[in-house]
Simulated scan of single mutants.
Amino acid sequence: MIADRGYDSMALVNFVRDRGGEAHIPTQSRVRIQRSVPPSLYRQRNLVERFFCKLKQFRRIATRFEKHADNFMAALALASARIWMRAMESTP
């Protein structure tokens, strides 16, 4: 699991470890024992976070306009495809 500094707590790190995962969460500056995260992993987390921010620009997604799960997933798929097409057309 990769998370931001805001989720830096030993309780969360232990929770992930107890379930067989590995937590990659950088520590806050006030913590005595510092944990580091590989920059490449942290960069990937940032890409995912920016994608979700772009999804929230679609009103239908942000307000959960579709109440049925199938319709909501279809709206997510359409919005994701539109974001992907915009990214592909701007890439040389």
Rank of each mutant, 00 (worst) to 15 (best):
M1N: 03
D4H: 05
D4I: 06
R5N: 09
R5Q: 10
Y7R: 01
D8P: 06
A11H: 09
A11D: 14
L12M: 09
L12C: 03
V13L: 04
F15T: 08
V16Y: 04
R17A: 14
R19L: 11
G20W: 06
G21M: 06
T27P: 12
T27A: 12
Q28I: 12
R32I: 13
I33H: 11
Q34N: 09
R35D: 02
R35Q: 10
R35V: 04
S36I: 04
V37Q: 01
V37G: 01
P38Q: 14
S40D: 12
S40K: 14
Y42L: 04
Y42I: 01
Y42C: 02
R45A: 00
L47F: 02
R50K: 15
F51C: 07
C53S: 14
L55P: 00
R60I: 14
R64N: 08
F65G: 00
F65Y: 15
E66R: 08
E66D: 15
A69L: 13
A69P: 00
D70C: 08
F72N: 06
M73D: 15
M73A: 15
A74L: 15
L76I: 12
L76C: 15
L78Y: 14
S80P: 03
R82K: 10
R82P: 00
M88P: 00
E89Q: 12
T91S: 11
P92R: 07
P92A: 13
P92C: 04
